[in-house]
């Protein structure tokens, strides 16, 4: 099977197989504080890994540039 077909198949499975997810009755209640806590923790848990990966990526980019500049400044000139 070609890789493109595999990608289409995986995408189709991801789109059509999942069902709607509901919070269980034990966890969820109608109080406003509870709903706010669900929203806040969902945002927190969604953004935290993205923030860590983005932070690490930015740090690597900055450090890589610093190293490049150091190599350029130390490299002997052609003349």
């Amino acid at each position: 099977m070609k890789p493109a077909w595999i990608s289409v198949l995986v995408l189709a499975l991801l789109v059509f197989l999942p069902d709607v997810a509901h919070a269980c009755a034990v966890c969820f209640d109608a109080r406003d504080e509870n709903r706010q806590a669900f929203v806040a923790t969902t945002v927190f848990l969604s953004l935290l890994p993205l923030g860590m990966v983005a932070g690490a990526g930015l740090w690597v980019r900055r450090r890589s540039r610093e190293i490049d500049e150091k190599i350029d400044s130390e490299a002997p000139s052609d003349r």
Binding site: T41, F44, L45, L48, P49, M52
Partner: peptide, 21 residues
């Protein structure tokens, strides 16, 4: 450490949910 941060984030979130109830 990144994986451990996510574990503690899960615990803190669960604590916040229970506390709000």
């Amino acid at each position: 450490v990144f994986t451990e941060i996510m574990m503690f984030a899960g615990l803190i979130s669960a604590h916040a949910i229970v506390r709000s109830q």
